[in-house]
Simulated scan of single mutants.
Amino acid sequence: MTEMQRLLQGYRMTTAEILYHMPDHPHLLQSFIWQQLDLAPKFPVLTRFLDFWTHNLDGKLHSVRVGTMEIVRASDFSHAQGEWVVH
């Protein structure tokens, strides 16, 4: 599926700020920014990424803050009235 097809099906640009405990120093928190097209409100792509994180990476998750924005809306499309070619 192309990116434009996803946008037309309701996918939105999703940004997540992930705070996690550093593996070598668990009392310190590190920030990681993740950004991907995803479907709100269930966020299946982000959920898969966080599942991968918890099963494969050493840094234990502390918190996740999610923001999303619809990039393409129906009002953003309009039909062209004509086409002009200028040399």
Results as ranks from 00 to 15, higher is better:
20 Y>V: 03
29 L>R: 03
50 L>N: 01
13 M>T: 12
49 F>H: 15
13 M>S: 11
80 A>K: 11
38 D>L: 07
49 F>C: 12
60 K>I: 07
67 G>D: 15
50 L>V: 12
12 R>D: 08
30 Q>M: 07
48 R>H: 13
21 H>T: 01
64 V>C: 13
75 S>H: 08
69 M>H: 10
82 G>S: 14
62 H>A: 05
35 Q>F: 00
76 D>S: 11
50 L>D: 03
48 R>Q: 15
18 I>Y: 01
76 D>G: 14
65 R>S: 09
30 Q>L: 01
36 Q>E: 15
8 L>V: 03
6 R>H: 04
70 E>S: 14
47 T>Y: 06
22 M>F: 09
75 S>N: 10
50 L>E: 07
20 Y>N: 00
15 T>E: 11
31 S>N: 01
34 W>I: 03
34 W>L: 04
36 Q>I: 07
61 L>D: 01
85 V>L: 14
26 P>A: 08
11 Y>F: 15
27 H>I: 10
1 M>T: 09
63 S>P: 08
13 M>W: 12
14 T>W: 12
38 D>V: 10
37 L>A: 07
40 A>Q: 03
40 A>N: 00
2 T>G: 14
23 P>D: 08
18 I>P: 00
19 L>T: 00
19 L>K: 01
30 Q>H: 09
63 S>N: 14
65 R>A: 07
57 L>E: 14
83 E>W: 06
5 Q>L: 13
37 L>G: 09
67 G>F: 13
29 L>I: 02
7 L>M: 04
75 S>I: 05
61 L>K: 01
77 F>K: 05
24 D>T: 10
59 G>V: 01
50 L>W: 02
34 W>F: 15
21 H>A: 09
14 T>P: 05
10 G>F: 04
16 A>R: 03
65 R>F: 09
76 D>C: 10
28 L>D: 15
61 L>M: 06
71 I>R: 09
57 L>H: 12
28 L>F: 13
52 F>T: 12
10 G>E: 04
58 D>G: 02
